[in-house]
Design a protein around this nucleic acid. Sequence first.
DNA 1: CTACAAAGACTACAATTGTAATCTGTAATC
DNA 2: GATTACAGATTACAATTGTAGTCTTTGTAG
Lengths: 121, 121
Amino acid sequence: MNKISEAELEVMKVVWKRNEVTSLEIIEEVSSKTNWNKNTIKTLLSRLVEKGAIQVMKDRGSLFVYAPNISEQEYKKKENQNFLDKLYNGSVNDMLLTFAKSKALTKKDLQELMKLIEEDK
Amino acid sequence: MNKISEAELEVMKVVWKRNEVTSLEIIEEVSSKTNWNKNTIKTLLSRLVEKGAIQVMKDRGSLFVYAPNISEQEYKKKENQNFLDKLYNGSVNDMLLTFAKSKALTKKDLQELMKLIEEDK
DNA sequence: CTACAAAGACTACAATTGTAATCTGTAATC
DNA sequence: GATTACAGATTACAATTGTAGTCTTTGTAG
């Protein structure tokens, strides 16, 4: 699958959130957050279909219904790794240190997270 | 300043590492990691100059010397924030949770990091 | 002084991306 | 049945990016 561009991602997010959704709904929701033209959103949608990130099913009356082909989790996992590789040579720790240095990450954040991980087990 | 592209970043990394560096040195070092043509690297270099990410000084004999205009820390900080905003609505915790879920981040990583933060204070 | 190599400038060109207008077919409306 | 409105398809077009070739100038070797 081809890379999802930044603008496309905004459309993708709506598809993830609603899971099965018509273009009408997509356009409404994306429009509410951006000032993109309807046609722009339609273009992004078809590019996502071309790229295989979204699949189309014609089944709700006459409207097409769109659904994700890749899950949000899966996508984020891949993007996390890309980001790590691109900037931190793949090292989570290097990344976290940079976050911490720039005060974007506090000890409290870490403690909370540890608790969450703990619970999850 | 304009966005640094992915290929440009590889050149930028060398400039950060060496701090003041001639194009010859840049080409050597980038070439050792990629199989990019010399001219490709030169193009990336001039684009970085155009974008203001790098500055040029003609002072080491006849060769130009290049130096970063933005520090690695500063750049990474900005990119971290962009990444966070793009995928996690700006929430570090959301991001870390995703990392943790995908096993890219373990409890041990966190403990080590806490120690480091502790020491840093 | 002349010729050559190499640095840096300039040009090239296809793919991707952001941004949208126009065309076409069909479903609903009168 | 004729008309219209809208979904989806097709086309458009400039900016950015990856990838490199060619031109120009100039330091250096002979």
